[in-house]
Structure formats: structure tokens, C-alpha cells
Amino acid sequence: MAILEVKNLKAYYDEVQILWGVNFKVEKGSLTTILGPNGAGKTTTLKAIMGLLDKVEGEIIFEGENIKNLPPYKRVERGLVLVPEGRMIFPELTVLENLEIGAYTSKARKFAKKNLEHVFELFPRLKERIHQKAGTLSGGEQQMLAIGRGIMACPKLLILDEPSLGLAPKLVLSIFEIIKKLKEEGITLLLVEQNVHLALNIADYGYILENGKIVDEGDAKKLENDPKVLEAYLGI
């Protein structure tokens, strides 16, 4: 069963149309990935799904209901959680406060204690820096915090936007290890990435987004050997 289904999604920045009818599905319990070059509309798609854009057309069906007209906080309350590109942590809040704010919704607050332990299990580094201001963390630690904050929200679908962006190769691998772990725990994931090989390596299903449209889709294993995928990335 699809937990999220996006139908004919169109999005605009002011008068400029960015998405031209995007269609995709995320199956419950799966790790789905959306790949595409810079400027293809990946982040715009996610912003539209979360309700951060003014002008959006089409349908966004989450757990069988069209949530297109809900404000962002109501989507989060339903379990749709985004770890945004560029991490967007709260720099003046401590690590702990950032995580607490991650569990802001009333449902997430009930599980805050348990989830906090879980986050510290996944990222022991964060526990060491618990009372440090988040702005003083390194890039990798901030990414861990951003993912941790997402876990705190009790997501039914956790969306990760470019979690490897700007990280050293070693850190990229450890972030992907964590994503794999989350998948094994049964969390449904949507991963948007530029790092094609790593993403397809851990994903079940993939979509290729180019110029605001889905141009190809298929099982991750199949896409890895697809000439169209290679073309999309060699054509940057």
C-alpha cells in the first residue's frame, strides 16, 4: 500500500513554473529515492509536499487523504516529516532543545523520552554535545542532529533532502549507514539525493526527476544499470 502518492504535482515560484506534473508513490515500509541533477526540482517537490509553497496544483495523498490544502504543521502532526536540505537546525538552541522541538507535536511528545534515547543510540556524538549550542557543531554533527530531530517527530514517512550534501566522504558513508539502519527498523523513507550510486545501493525503488518531470522509474537495481540514469548524470 502506498503511504504517499503524488499525482500531477505542479509548483510555481511566483510566476515561474518549476514542476510540470510530477507523479510518484512511496510504498509503506520501503525506501524510495528521487534522483536528479541540480535544479531538477527535487527540493521544490519536497517543499510542495510539506506545504511550504504558496502555489501548488495537483494531489498529495498521504494515507489515503488529500493533504494539499493543510498547513505544514498539520502535515507534520499526521506523521509526514522532512529533514530539510542544508539541515536548518536552530543555531542558538542547544542540541537537546533542538531535539525537544523536533518532538513538538502532541503525539511526538508522548514518545519524546524513548525517541531521545534512540537518537543518542544512533548518534552517540550528539549525547556528548547535549548542552552545546547547535550552531557550534560541525557540518556532520549538524546533519546528525537534523536527522535526529526528524526521528523525534515520530514519522510515518521520513523524508531526507540531500543528507550527504557538503559532507566529507567518510561522513557520507556513516550517514548512509544510519539511513540503512532506519530502514531496517521499519521506518518508511523517501530519500532525495545527488549521490546516485549510494542512494540506489540502499533504496528499493527509484524515480528520476529532470526539468520538473519524472523521466524514469523502476527498481533500484534496474536503475543502476539504466543508460538513462547515466545520461541524466553525465549531462549535468
Binding site: P72, V81, L82, L93, I101, Y104
Partner: peptide
């Protein structure tokens, strides 16, 4: 308090606050 922390979060990054499930309005 949660609400107080939410106020501080909104003051630092309102879009991120929305993504935390905060009713920013």
C-alpha cells in the same frame, strides 16, 4: 516550556519551525 522553545525556534528559522509541526501563525 515547549511553547517558549517554539517561540525561540520561530525567531531563528520560521520555515524550519513549520517543519517541526509548530503552528507558526
Amino acid at each position: 516550556t515547549y511553547l517558549g522553545k517554539a517561540i525561540r525556534a520561530v525567531s531563528q528559522n520560521i520555515d524550519a519551525a513549520k517543519l517541526m509541526g509548530i503552528n507558526t501563525t
